Amino acid sequence: MREIIFDTETTGLDPKKGDRLVEIGCVEMVNRVQTGRTFHAYFNPDRSMPAEAEAVHGLSETFLADKPRFHEKAAELLEFIGDSPLVAHNAGFDFGFLNAELDICGLEAVSTTRMVDTVAIARVRHPGAKNSLDALCTRYGVDRSHRTKHGALLDAELLAQVYVELTGGRQIGLELASVVEDSITIAAAPTRIRERVFRPSRPHVASAAELERHAQFLESIKSPLWSG
């Protein structure tokens, strides 16, 4: 199965308030193995870059000034992603910006039925734990030492490794794999997640018969140390 793991960088948090997409990175996987094919692009957002956003990804107005507008790369991007499921961390955010840019171009939105949210999967696998990309990289032993700032392609490549672990992977920690086919269900429709089966605890108190045999055994020991 072909899947696209992707990440975005933006000028802010809300496309409805005028924030724009400034970078996208996509990694192709087939049967949960990276093929080496990627798509990466920076975009001129035609607006200022807030300092707090630049502090996160390091993309300045000057750097983006000579980059193409989204509409200039839209066809190439859509050809790359095709009709494959799209995997992202906190996918609703990335889908929101991607579809906002497509709307500005007069293009059809990408259906959210294709969305696979690794945050939702992580919350099921590790309830109550931190599920940021950094935290998951640490949990699964994914090297992120070269990640000094957020970058769309770099984060997509890290997420691809994390996604493999979340859906079975190398069984780090001797955990039993979740059923891989459930991963998209977990992300797209959390209410359909199969309920966890809790088994009663095993008895660990000695029975009366066992206690009696133990007492008989102790009586058979000659000059035990504990008799003083």
Rank of each mutant, 00 (worst) to 15 (best):
K67Y: 08
F70I: 00
Q171D: 15
H204I: 14
L153P: 05
L77N: 01
L86G: 00
V164N: 02
A120E: 09
K16Y: 09
P50R: 01
S227I: 12
R144M: 10
R202G: 07
E23T: 06
P68S: 04
L176T: 13
A51R: 06
I5G: 00
E165P: 02
R199C: 08
M115R: 15
F43I: 01
K17S: 12
L78K: 09
N99V: 06
E175D: 14
L158E: 02
V119S: 04
E108H: 09
L176Y: 13
A75P: 02
T10S: 09
F63L: 10
F43P: 00
K73R: 15
V164H: 07
Y140H: 10
V30A: 05
R2M: 11
V116D: 02
D134K: 11
V205R: 15
S207V: 03
M1F: 08
L21R: 04
M29V: 09
A122C: 10
T10I: 11
E165H: 07
G12N: 09
K130M: 06
G12Q: 07
M29Q: 09
V124A: 12
V197Q: 14
R202C: 02
S84A: 15
M1D: 09
R147F: 00
Q171N: 15
L77D: 01
R32T: 04
V180Y: 11
K130Y: 09
G173K: 07
I121C: 03
R170Q: 15
P45R: 02
F43N: 03
P85Y: 08
R20I: 03
L153G: 05
E101G: 03
L59I: 10
K149M: 12
D155Y: 04
S111N: 05
M115K: 15
P85R: 05
L102C: 02
L154S: 05
A206H: 10
A53N: 06
A187W: 02
A152K: 01
E210L: 07
D7T: 06
V124D: 04
L176S: 13
T138D: 14
W226K: 13
